[in-house]
């Protein structure tokens, strides 16, 4: 094998990726060849110093402009982020096991509620228990059109149906149902609170409508048990 062929293997040799036989062959060659040995030593130096290159610092302008872009994006970002979470709720598979169904719905709704509270930077945040204490039908006059009233009526019918089935469930299923409904009601209470402060808040209205739809889906899921 000519020197050029050996030199083409030197990077793999340095990186330790040669087969044992090839490695032994190249080592024998390096022992006898000054030129190839010099190439090996030079490449080792290059690799060594490449791993120690310093980090460079961007100008402060990068952060300034980034903040401007983020500020411009923030309302949309919030809306699209929450929409993505609600969309995930809609795609929950009903053939999940009970704990998964309830846990997924509950976790996503918690995130949804927290995001809503934080992004609105409410000065006063009622306790979770006071939020959850409101019934599922309270504040329904905030959604006033016929379609929303239809949803509310459907939810109430579903809830009554589920409550009748609930007594026949295992304790685990009952706990999962109670936790899921509590979480979605907390979410709804948060939306109501936002709307009571600003009835024209279309984002909160949309989120509240979506939350009602998700409550409906959740109840429909539990009617299958």
């Amino acid at each position: 094998m000519a020197c050029q062929e050996y030199q083409e293997l030197i990077s793999d040799y340095i990186d330790g990726t040669l087969e044992l036989g090839e490695e032994a062959r190249i080592e024998r060659h390096l022992a006898d060849c000054d030129g190839c040995r010099a190439v090996r030593d030079d490449l080792l130096q290059i690799v060594h110093f490449s791993r120690q290159l310093p980090l460079h610092t961007p100008s402060s302008e990068v952060w300034t402009q980034l903040q401007t872009k983020i500020a411009a994006e923030r309302p949309t970002h919030f809306g699209s982020r929450v929409a993505a979470w609600v969309s995930r709720l809609k795609n929950l598979e009903l053939n999940l096991s009970v704990p998964q169904l309830a846990a997924s719905a509950a976790a996503l709704l918690i995130i949804f509620s927290v995001a809503l509270i934080i992004s609105r930077q409410s000065a006063e945040t009622p306790s979770a228990s006071s939020l959850a204490g409101r019934s599922g039908t309270a504040g329904m006059n905030l959604l006033s059109n016929a379609e929303d009233q239809e949803i509310e009526e459907k939810i109430e019918r579903l809830r009554e149906s589920v409550e009748q089935r609930r007594v026949t469930w295992s304790p685990e299923l009952q706990v999962a149902y109670d936790r899921s409904i509590r979480q979605v009601d907390q979410c709804l209470a948060t939306c109501r609170q936002q709307l009571s402060g600003d009835p024209s808040d279309q984002v909160s209205k949309d989120l509240m409508r979506d939350a009602y739809l998700e409550k409906q889906r959740l109840l429909e899921g539990f009617t299958k048990f």
Binding site: L53, T57, V62
Partner: peptide, 13 residues
């Protein structure tokens, strides 16, 4: 902002 401060140099480099 802390995430930016911690990682900006490596990303920029």
């Amino acid at each position: 902002e802390r995430i930016y401060e911690q990682h900006r140099r490596r990303v920029y480099s």
